[in-house]
């Protein structure tokens, strides 16, 4: 038997409104007295917390893709009976229905540049400084500010590090990301261009992707499109997203 949630509506109203003050008090009393409600409430909170681990979810998604891609490459023999007349008729009807649905759904949806940026930009998890990245206290403090999402403070510290070590690609990369978060798109563009110009480093692909998104956010649409085309036609790990976004960019 399929189990169902029974308090979702009220939990949703309590957490995100609307709910009157008296109802809220009643709900809070019940939360203490009703273990089933309490359990479902906790589940609600736990799920949300786990979904905020954007980086782990992204990692899991990519692992699944690697596994599934590998499975898809296994060729299974085609069963010739599949091609029987009735299967062909059924397939044709299904195709026509799908085609009709697709035509109906093909009404163009317009996206603003900012909408597209929001759709495709996802903030990077804060990382600790690598062994190879000239570890020192300043780096740690700067990354710590980044982790705490205090991006302006992180930028001040990143700039201090870059004054002494301007070729530190790792810090350049996070300066770019922090600049996006602090709405300093021009600075972010400067950093990502620097990384790309250096070539042959592990950050180039991501820098290209973020640079294109920054151009989009800055309404430099043609420059963004050129870069998305370049990403789309390359082995960049963002090539599929770049292909999608190109279809959505308003002409």
């Amino acid at each position: 038997m399929i189990k169902k949630t029974s308090h979702s509506q009220r939990i949703e109203q309590y957490r995100f409104g609307p709910m009157s003050e008296s109802e809220r008090l009643k709900f809070e009393r019940e939360l203490i007295e009703n273990p089933e409600l309490n359990h479902e409430f906790q589940l609600d909170l736990e799920i949300e917390e786990s979904l905020k681990q954007y980086d782990i979810i992204d990692l899991r998604r990519k692992i699944f893709r690697a596994i599934n891609e590998d499975k898809a490459q296994v060729k299974y023999p085609v069963n010739k009976s599949f091609h029987s007349k009735w299967y062909m008729v059924a397939a044709s009807i299904t195709f026509l229905i799908l085609l009709a649905g697709a035509i109906h759904l093909m009404k163009p949806v317009k996206y603003t540049n900012n909408n597209l940026f929001e759709m495709y930009y996802s903030s990077e998890n804060a990382h600790s400084v690598t062994r190879s990245a000239a570890t020192n206290n300043n780096n740690e403090e700067a990354m710590s500010k980044y982790r705490e999402k205090d991006f302006n403070a992180a930028l001040v510290l990143f700039n201090e590090i870059l004054d002494k070590d301007p070729n530190n690609i790792y810090i350049r990369y996070y300066t770019g990301l922090a600049s996006i978060e602090a709405n300093q798109t021009d600075k972010a563009i400067h950093e990502f261009k620097f990384i790309i110009d250096q070539k042959n480093n592990l950050f180039v692909e991501n820098a290209q992707w973020y640079l294109a998104l920054c151009y989009l956010k800055n309404n430099q649409v043609e420059t963004a499109k050129d870069l998305f085309v370049q990403i789309s036609n390359s082995s960049n790990s963002h090539n599929q997203e770049a292909t999608q976004i190109l279809k959505r960019i308003t002409k």
């Binding site: 893709r65 690697a66 590998d70 690598t130 592990l202």
Partner: peptide, 17 residues
Amino acid sequence: VEGLRLRKEKIIKYVYK
């Protein structure tokens, strides 16, 4: 290690393969 830190898909696929 650096590729995993950045969750780069090509490195994840490489580790898998």
